[in-house]
Amino acid sequence: MMDQSQSFHDLVRRRQSVRQFLAQPLEATQIKAVLEDAQRAPSNCNTQPWHVHVVSGATRASLTQVLIEQAEKASYSPDFSWDETAFPGRLDERRRAQGKAYYEALGIAREDKAGRHEAILRNLDFFGAPHAAFLFMPSVGDGVRVAADIGMYAQTFLLSLTARGYAGIPQTLLGLFADPIREHLGIPDEMKLLFGISFGYADPTALSVAPMPRAAIGDSSVMHV
């Protein structure tokens, strides 16, 4: 039991949001193994509401072009509202600290609008990852419960990638282009896009961004006895 606990302790700390990947794709069997792990995620009443579409190869390349075209026109179609400036207090402080650390690692100054724009577009090329998984969900009530299930699926997916020596990054930005992604992949309108995960092999030559600090347990948890 001690060995298993230590392994999990190490695993969750090895997982990082990677923003530069090798072009080398995973084999279909490797992707299937990750999907099988993620399928073990818990869900309300075992509904397993996730609908996951993985793009690779030519489909991935053509979708990137579609997304960049939409971004250049500022044509967004999120299924769920999003305002990154609406986080209160400490949450906004953490958001700003992450952005500052990332752009500093890239050597992009705050006033460099062109550089920042190019950095944002790298999201839509999946940071060079050969694969991306789009997490869709059905509309049930206000969607919060189903979205929570999708979150548990995504974390299981990401931990499976890490455990197998791969890497991934969840991307909210991909969820802002729900309509063109649905159209490109032939997905019905009733399936709503929450976000995507780019994944593959991490590029060991990528610029290093120090792991972002985590809040103290006392800031987020209360023990009642």
Results as ranks from 00 to 15, higher is better:
A167I: 08
A41D: 04
Q20T: 09
T172W: 01
E183D: 08
I169S: 05
D142P: 12
V225A: 10
S139G: 09
A178M: 07
P188C: 09
L193A: 09
S220D: 11
A178P: 09
D92A: 13
S75M: 06
A133R: 07
W82P: 04
G128I: 06
V18W: 08
L67K: 00
G218M: 00
D112V: 02
Y201I: 09
Q48G: 06
P188Y: 08
G175L: 03
P211W: 13
Q16S: 15
R164D: 04
A132P: 00
V66M: 03
T59C: 12
T29W: 03
Q4D: 10
V18A: 11
I31R: 04
G89N: 09
S75T: 04
F21R: 14
V66T: 12
A154E: 13
F134R: 08
G165D: 08
D37I: 05
P78G: 01
D3T: 13
H9T: 10
V222G: 00
I120A: 14
D3S: 14
H117F: 07
A101S: 14
G99I: 00
G57M: 04
P49K: 08
F136H: 03
A210V: 14
P130T: 03
E104M: 10
M223F: 09
A133P: 05
D149S: 05
L207G: 07
S17A: 15
L158I: 11
L194I: 05
I181P: 05
R19D: 06
V225Y: 08
K192Y: 12
R40S: 13
S5D: 13
P25G: 03
V144N: 14
R145W: 10
S43Q: 02
Y102C: 02
S43I: 04
F157T: 07
L135E: 02
Q70T: 04
L35A: 10
A147T: 11
L22A: 14
M137A: 15
A215Q: 14
Q171H: 03
L67F: 02
Y166W: 04
A147M: 11
M191H: 12
R60Y: 11
D37T: 10
P211S: 14
D92Q: 14
Y201F: 13
L159R: 02
F195K: 01
D79V: 02
C45I: 09
Q98R: 10
Q20Y: 06
M137P: 07
A132T: 00
K32R: 09
I108Y: 07
L124H: 05
G186P: 01
L63P: 03
R145P: 03
S221V: 15
A105C: 09
Q30M: 06
K32I: 05
T64E: 14
S208E: 14
